[in-house]
Simulated scan of single mutants.
Amino acid sequence: MARAKNNLLLAQVSGTIGKQLTVTQRAGQVILGKAKTKKGKRYKFSPKQLDVQSRFTDATEYAAVVKADPDMVAAYMAVAKPGQNANNLAIRDFYNAPEIHELKTDEYTGQAGQAIRVRATDDFRVYQVVVGIYTASGVLVEEGNALQGRSGIEWLYTTRNDNPAYSGGKVRAMAEDLPGNQTFEEKVL
């Protein structure tokens, strides 16, 4: 793909030229690319290609929901760079799950009122972080939403129940973004 700057010949051109070159206009720039070829009617898509097509359909449906909500459009446009729009960013957000960078359980000793900290980021926004505490045998002791800190990256969960047999158990954190992508992290106590 090539970009043309200050080219009088291509300034108002778009489309395919001679079945070899495609000219498109985006954000005030002229973009040159290889002409697209048409697939024959008998072309059979592989399962992987069908999966990609299905996922892209889901991504465009999410983008349509975002475009219907003026507040969401404004939120996405607040982080947009030149040439991007809310539709592009919503599709990208759909494809990228949040990341959990750190799950800190240093302060937890099985008592109520103790802190469990999670550092989570996303390419747009982490919607929620849920923390669960399990015994060594896998029984859920408690679970709840963590509160987002001022930085937007730090999340704090304060334990509600005493857990005298916490040793050997685990803490599980789940970070979720707006399109519903989820990432999990576990730490053994």
Rank of each mutant, 00 (worst) to 15 (best):
A80E: 07
A80F: 09
P82Q: 03
P82I: 09
P82T: 08
N85L: 04
N85R: 03
N85W: 06
A90C: 04
A90N: 03
I91R: 04
R92T: 13
R92L: 15
D93S: 07
D93M: 04
F94N: 01
F94D: 03
Y95H: 06
N96Y: 09
N96A: 12
A97V: 04
P98C: 06
E99A: 15
E99S: 14
I100Y: 00
H101W: 10
H101Y: 13
E102G: 15
L103M: 02
L103T: 02
L103H: 01
K104A: 15
K104M: 11
K104G: 11
T105R: 03
T105H: 02
D106M: 11
E107L: 14
E107A: 15
Y108S: 03
T109Q: 15
A112P: 03
G113L: 11
G113E: 11
A115Y: 07
I116G: 00
R117Y: 10
R119K: 12
R119G: 10
T121P: 03
T121C: 08
T121N: 10
T121S: 10
T121R: 08
T121M: 12
D123S: 13
D123Y: 12
F124N: 03
F124M: 06
R125Y: 14
R125I: 14
R125D: 15
V126W: 00
Y127P: 10
Y127G: 14
Y127R: 14
Y127L: 14
Y127K: 09
V130N: 03
V130T: 11
V131A: 01
V131M: 01
V131K: 00
G132D: 05
G132Q: 06
I133S: 02
Y134W: 10
Y134L: 07
T135R: 06
T135A: 13
A136I: 14
A136D: 11
S137E: 11
V139Q: 13
V139T: 12
V141G: 06
E142C: 05
E143Y: 05
G144W: 04
L147W: 08
R150S: 15
E154I: 13
T158F: 10
T158N: 10
R160E: 14
N161S: 14
N161C: 13
N161R: 14
N163V: 12
Y166E: 11
S167Y: 13
G169T: 06
K170V: 11
V171M: 00
R172E: 09
A173L: 03
A175E: 01
P179I: 01
G180C: 07
N181E: 11
T183M: 07
T183P: 03
T183F: 03
F184G: 06
E186Y: 08
E186T: 05
K187S: 09
